[in-house]
Structures are given as C-alpha cells and as structure tokens.
Amino acid sequence: MMNEQRREFIKKTALGVFAGLGVASGLVPAFSLEKTALPVWDEKPVPGKIRWGMVIDTRQCKEGCQQCVTACHHEHNVPAFKNRKEEIRWIWKNSYKNVFPTATNSAVSKEIQNRSFLSLCNHCADSPCTQICPTGATFKRWDGIVEIDYHRCVGCRFCIPACPYGSLSFNWQDPRTAIVDPVTAYPTREQGVVEKCNFCSDRLVKGLLPACVDACPEQAFTFGDMNDPVSDIRVVLESNVTMQRKPELGTKPSVFYII
C-alpha cells in the first residue's frame, strides 16, 4: 500500500520535477538553512483543484507507539512544554470518548474504548477557525489545507474555542526554549502566535508524504487527493465505512477514521 501511495505521488509530480530542473540552473544550494528543495508544483496552483485528505485506520494503531507524534513534532520543531497548561501539540493520541464525544454508538466494545485515536487538525472544508480569524492569518489554502500564516497572526486566540476539535495551540511563551532537538529545515514559531498541524504542506511541496504517514510502522494512514477519483484515498474511502469527528457540526473534516 505504501509503495502504491508513493507511485501515485511520483506520477503526479514527475512533470513538476522535470520543470524543476530548470529551476535548478538558477539555484545553488550551497548553504543549508531551510533547504530550498525544488517545488514539485512549478506553476501557481489552481484553487480547489486538489483537496488533500487523510484516512486513519485505527485498527492498525498500536498501543504505546508514538512514532507518528514524535516524527511530526520533531520535523516541525514543536516545543515540548511539559505542563498541561502550555502544552503545544500538532498530533496526539486520545481516547474514543474524547475523539468522538457525540458519536451515537456509545456502547462500544472494551477494545475500542482502550484503542488510541489520533487527534490532529481536520482541515475542515467549512472551518470555523478561518471564519473567525480577524486578520485571515488562519486561512484555507488552494489545496484544502487550513494553514496559519505565522507572519500575520496577532494572537487573539479566538480560533482556539472556535475549533470543536481543540486542534490549535497557543505559544504562551517563547517556544525555542522547549525545542529538544531542533531541525534546521523548518522554522520555529514565536511567542504569542497560534500554531497547529499543517498537513505537512512543507513536505507535500517536495513531493513527500506527511511525516506521520511516513513514520507509521503499521501503515495506518492513507493520504492523498480526495478530488482525484482514482487516488488511493478514494479507493480506501469507497471500500470502507469511515467516521468523521463531530459531523453534526457541518465542518466537513478532511480526516476520516476507520473504526
């Protein structure tokens, strides 16, 4: 399954890579800061053409395994504040009860009650957080990703209660003090802005799958373009019964769960 996903990616991006060779002629990556890997999509993207989505097969998610969380938080310089009050998280493990508090089937098996369910930003099609943001710092991208523009965020924090999934974290203090093993390839955030999962837009542009998808030893994730009828994710969505979080709110999440 993993290989197929990669193939799909490579197919989609082959054209972009060839175009990217042209870019290479004008680019000397002599110095390794945030590395200027060539964008896979050479041209300006067409809004609405792609909609990234993710399916998490929770049956594969193993208890005690934190590899996706570690990979994501390491790759994006997510600070590790220990106290609950200031904790910052992009992806984390949660219980069935907390992930699906409004699910009608409350009498689930013991196994499901004990299973871990990953929480992350749902990249909703109708996202309340982008609607409430007074400056448009939290905004919906051309490819369905809900992104935070850290250059623009004023730190008013209205997006935090606006999100029904608790996906946003605020930098109550300078995050750089709590980054354990910093990576140079991705920026940090600064004191006073809100942050959250970006669906690895930084990796997608290089033609890579999201860090959590790549890191999972059980291949529990399927990631792809939901607008592409032959994509992997469409196959998985069409052949499985999936659940979204709090669907009754009408936010239309892009993250689906197989229970």
Binding site: C133, R152, C156
Partner: peptide
Amino acid sequence: VVADMGKPDRVLNIIFFPNPRSLVF
C-alpha cells in the same frame, strides 16, 4: 483586546488584512 493579544505589535493587521467574514473584525 490589546492586553489579551499575543502579538499586540501586530494589532494593525486587523485593519491591513481585514477578514470580512470574521465577526471579531
């Protein structure tokens, strides 16, 4: 409002980049 902001130095972003869909704005 300003006291509650994480980045009050950017308060004018609300005027420079207004989001007409936002009730806060």
